[in-house]
Design a protein around this nucleic acid. Structure first.
Lengths: 213, 213, 213, 213
DNA sequence: CATGAATGAGGTTTCATTCAT
DNA sequence: GATGAATGAAACCTCATTCAT
């Protein structure tokens, strides 16, 4: 009990102090986790497999650096979101119209998938398998939901601006997200899949679905 | 090895002899499995939880009736597919045009989800978490892929008939499937979600995305 | 308790009344057990495998006819010993000298092995794996030991008659038995083995080892 | 599957790095396994019993140190063979003639059995119960066969040198081996047995059986 | 007599975590 | 910081036996 609490506190402090720049070990473990999750899926990504991939001699090392499996998974998602954010933001903001921005978002996601297939596969695996019941991940799900809300708001603005037609923006946004994630998931195991082409197709698809008549 | 195979043979024989309605216990276990999978997800649906839900005293009972976890999962999927088939086919075949059939398919799926949320949640959980690496489920994945191919062929026919515009039918079909499954997944844990309304929205969405200009 | 005792009593009575002629079911199960034991060995010969081989639909049938695994195994050994007795006795008694009888015994055992490889493999498997610790089989081991004692007595007589030289008859008898059983064991899995030739070699070997200088 | 393989790799590496003396725990587990196998036999030697004998709190510990039951058994055999090799080789090589060497081999085996009855009982239990069907042990059986072939070659040389008479060296070698193993097996459960005396008897027996007329 | 569902014990393995060094 | 042994829970599976039908 005491050990666990103090340990958790320590890590919390360190994590807060380290801000975005992780310690080398943590980053190494996160990278290994991404690989393993992409390979075998969220639930089969055991500490043993991750440690092996990271070149660590024991799983104790992971428990030492992360406050449990959830903490590691959170870090994986955070890491990939950071990567995606840096990649997508400029590509999206390069456009003015909402339609062009939506297209940039969809195609950007899948271009990113083409470049970092394992990263996107990993985050998709995690998010699809998250459940409300897991304590410690609930707050995390809320964050994801909030991210989605931001994009929903963009859809709404486009509708108010007359650029997009009338539709339920939440349903639309989730459909877009689901379609992208589906391609990502398949890309992880089918190297022959033309991810960028699928991105263009999806962009066309949702362009027709959203654009004013 | 040998025991497992021989056991599978035995069960196969018994299943064949049991005509259409399962042994009763089997059906009860499948029903319990559906509940548990919908609740806690594919990987956390242990024999222990399923046995408890089914009112069985031991997990050995499940191993007795099913040739391992994969066999049980296959039965779950088969059962739900049978339910869905019976529900959807008449609703789809009631329409002539491809567009109307596509709408009937999407809305039908989600009407079904409104009536049997746990059933659809369970099958979605299973299919999302299947990986090619699991021996014994590979052939099963192929079946799923074949089912999808049938629907893709419908899209192609609609295109040739001039009813649908030009698009990649595989990408379209997967997007539709992914959007439906996403709603199904959320419905399992958010009882307040208006699944039928989402169905109409998705039908509208994909109607605009597919229909000829 | 009561059920078990009465059941056991029932079987005891039936067995006693049935004398040497078993009921058809029992014989059928014993035959299947012999096959399975020869195939997979004593410990892996589960009721499930035996029932399958016997064409029975459940293992309950075996428990019904036999008072446990030990009882079945005893019956297997008894059955094979009866077979061997009928085969060997005339062949041995056809000879006068102890040396000729010993040779007839060794060669006869392996001729029998050539004709009924599964039967001999089964009994060897059982006897090799018997341990004193198993209650209910102890008395059975004593019987086996008694059988051996009879043969030892023959060796002793031959020594007193001056036909055999001086040696420890127990050690000799066990060496003979062990050598025969080793061939039997190999024959069960190596169909190419010339069992009869090995029998002649062993007969020569032990002839030289026993005969007076 | 994957986990098991990777785990095996890890252990292989560790074992290689541990020079000659094992990790200590491994040796302790092997020692406990020898005791348990000698007591209850190969198939009844469960991880639970071995862990208890080794003073371990859980069977998981054994799975941690060994890549499954087969790996542990291999280690047991290897350990005993190492012991036997060190004991027998000098005793055998102290003699010139083939006859003397054969006697030294037989008597040496049983002297060793008198000193380490459990060790020899354990290895005999394992080898007798091995079957070709067990994957992972097949290669191991081949090794055993190869060891026997070496000794068979010695018999052949003695025959060519005119020291031994004409006989099938394979049959002879197996008979010797079987006779020794039989004594070993009995010694494990009959502390009153004079193993060394039996050794001398067997040496005499096979001396008469092999020596030129 | 026969069936086959049910039971509970016991088997091996994997897992995340803790802790002494 | 780093290591890897130890732990105990939980997973799936097989087994022999019992029992209602």
């Amino acid at each position: 009990m005491q050990a666990k609490n103090s340990s958790a506190k320590q890590k919390g402090v360190r994590r807060a102090g380290a801000s975005f720049t992780e310690t080398g070990r943590r980053a190494q473990i996160v990278a290994a986790a991404i690989e393993v999750i992409a390979d075998v899926g969220y639930h089969r990504a055991s500490f043993a497999k991750i440690a092996e991939r990271a070149g660590l001699s024991s799983t104790g090392m992971i428990s030492y650096h992360f406050d449990g499996r959830d903490d590691l998974m959170r870090e994986v998602v955070t890491e990939v979101l950071r990567l995606a954010e840096g990649y997508l933001r400029p590509r999206i903001e390069a456009h003015r119209s909402y339609a062009a921005r939506l297209r940039a978002s969809i195609e950007g996601n899948l271009d990113l998938c083409a470049e970092y297939p394992r990263h996107l596969a990993a985050i998709t695996e995690i998010l699809v398998n998250l459940r409300g019941g897991e304590p410690g991940m609930v707050a995390f799900l809320d964050t994801t939901e909030a991210n989605l809300a931001v994009q929903v708001e963009q859809l709404r603005k486009a509708q108010r601006a007359g650029e997009f037609r009338d539709f339920d923006p939440w349903v639309m946004m989730r459909a877009i997200r689901a379609a992208i994630d589906d391609v990502v998931r398949r890309a992880a195991h089918d190297p022959g899949l033309d991810v960028r082409a699928a991105g263009r197709e999806l962009a066309d698809l949702f362009d027709r679905a959203t654009r004013s008549a």
